[in-house]
Amino acid sequence: MGLEDLPHNFLTGQLEDLVKWARKSSMWPATFGLACCAIEMMSSGAADFDLARFGMEVFRNSPRQADLMIVAGRVSQKMAPVLRQVYDQMMEPKWVIAMGVCASTGGMFNNYAVVQGVDQIVPVDVYAPGCPPTPETLMHAILTLHEKVRTGEITRRRGVEPAVVFDAAPWVPEVPSAVRVSRPS
């Protein structure tokens, strides 16, 4: 990093910047591939697009080790509780990218089986459009999220007032009842 050229081997700065830099540079996504978008997510990790350039290639299979959930694909009513459970298992701080229109809004599948937007179940940070988004779009989404982490506040999570992260009681967002809809026959 060129630090050896400095006359003294220490730097001063804000702790906040350092934490944000660390969070941004070592963000580990959870594998949450659902449908078509999962294939493009895998393509992004493979040779041609190489997510490793952004420190993102370590797809963790356990949600406990992941910071970022990329919801890649349509979320069915049957999958919704599972998705929520995986999200709950992830450690704070955690982020969510809704990859593709199906995850963002339900897309062309405006019907009984698909959750109309994953933001009904989990809070979403970045929406990536496309059906499926190309690896470039996913990368743009990831870089947007990096920028958000870099410029955001470290102690405040979305929707929490006042900003308390190390509170004993974990913050549980309100899950709308539409998670599992029983429709009249």
């Binding site: 009513q77 049957k78 009984y112 009249p184 026959s185």
Partner: peptide
């Protein structure tokens, strides 16, 4: 479909549910 689902969606008296 999930276990507790009510109705059979491909019947014609079942709406598309959008």
């Amino acid at each position: 479909l999930p276990e507790e689902w009510e109705g059979h969606p491909l019947r014609k008296d079942y709406g598309i549910g959008g």
